[in-house]
Design a protein around this nucleic acid. Structure first.
Lengths: 251, 251
DNA sequence: AAGTGGTCTAGACCACCGT
DNA sequence: CGGTGGTCTAGACCACTTG
């Protein structure tokens, strides 16, 4: 990694200075982005990476530490370090904050209703960094928790990243959508921003969720990003919150 | 810190094993809890702590790293490490996720309406770990953003921790409540859990927020904790979300 | 037993901050 | 300038997992 053996602390002389471990981290993120290591795979051991980059193990360690804290990698003592995957139950509920008011968590089941490709409207285009009219997939689906229909989602996806997406493939049922996107299209959701509001139920939402039009619903708008902070999905979720609530921890 | 100089990696032989840096962290948290270092104060330098605990600087560093990532301490390069404070603008908005839909953040102003002491109801007692009937302070207040009244809060506080709390002291205006609690009563809020729902506005909320009864509001119930995960505050916030929204990042 | 991540040390130098 | 945190090294040993 551009090191001069004669000066242990030498760094790349560059206008945009950054510490060694961060350069290594960036390099590794680029490797993830390029698909060199796929979700669930083990990456090389710390020792091997240290040799490869010609730095000490502690420096590699610090790079991996940061990536693990950003949920890009998962460390498992005695086994190795692995690329995070939405299949892993550990990171399964990272993007679903809805929990039942009382009692144990029930498995969420996704019920896709429709899937079409159409030109993006102004709002969707802005959220996804597209021009109005660019093609997006539009998916409607419900989320059920043991018989209760709790969420109605309207989901917009960059069409170019999900070629041929159709209703049939979305019927994974218990598999999360992000797990499916990751496995079938190699698109990994890294982080998301959500905006929450209260809204009166529209006629369509009310019917699907079994409430009266005008009843209060929790509106959750989400933009999800892959590597490189590229927005890939925008969704509008309508949540029924009489028996479930959205849980958030302020650390 | 119970080390044996003849064995560099020696640890305390104890049934509840934990690494050295974690023991040091726990010790420092107890020091914070005991008020040895107050909010805003500088703690001793890494080198001095290393000497005091008879460990290497790297070990102290790792303890401090964790505490900094939990927002208990704040590092400032070249200056030192400081006890986090709600006065610090950096951690000012850590517990307020409400932001205007568009445009820049406006300073929030707190308008206290009432402050009384009364016995806790069942729900409040459960949230605060009290017996029903134990005394709590009950505070009503509004949150205004540049003329807009956006939030109506009903706040319950452990009475024993805030002796003599009265309406007059709450009129800090631009100071956050948590900053006031920390400065006037030495009670520092460390973390909080929130539960979000949509609710129809009640008559009281509707009047205060300038909406019609039955209009959808965002209901935010929060339990806030001090050191030792001790619940200290429970509040129910009614948020008007037509021009503001609750922002959440899923990392 | 071999391989991995996790902890700990001792010491060096760098970057930033105040005086 | 001296003091602080920030980076980096080289090497040791511990704890966990697998064969």
């Amino acid at each position: 990694m551009n090191r001069d053996p004669s000066r242990p602390s030498a760094r790349v002389a560059s206008p945009t200075f950054s510490p060694l471990y961060r350069q290594i981290k960036d390099f590794m993120i680029r490797s993830l982005e390029a698909g060199e290591w796929g979700p669930g795979d083990a990456i090389p051991s710390e020792g091997e990476l240290a040799q490869r980059f010609n730095v000490s193990q502690g420096t590699v360690r610090k790079a991996i530490d940061e990536m693990a804290s950003e949920n890009l990698l998962v460390r498992r003592q005695g086994k190795g370090t692995f690329v995070a995957s939405h299949d892993d139950p550990r990171s399964f509920y990272r993007f679903l904050r809805l929990v039942p008011d009382s009692g144990e968590a029930v498995q969420a089941v996704s019920v896709p209703l429709s899937c079409v490709t159409r030109p993006a409207g102004a709002e969707v285009a802005a959220a996804l960094g597209l021009a109005a009219g660019d093609p997006v997939h539009y998916v409607e689906r419900l989320l059920r928790f043991g018989g209760d229909t709790v969420v109605f989602d309207e989901i917009y996806l960059l069409a170019e990243l999900f070629p041929g997406l159709a209703l049939a493939q979305l019927s994974g049922g218990e598999r999360s959508l992000y797990s499916l996107f990751e496995g079938d299209y190699g698109v990994r959701m890294i982080r998301a921003e959500e905006r929450l509001r209260a809204e009166p139920a529209g006629a369509h939402s009310a019917k699907l969720l079994g409430v009266r039009a005008g009843d209060p619903l929790l509106l959750v708008e989400r933009t999800a990003y892959t590597y490189g902070d590229k927005p890939v999905e925008w969704r509008r979720g309508h949540y029924r919150t009489d028996r479930f609530h959205y849980r958030n921890d302020l650390g």
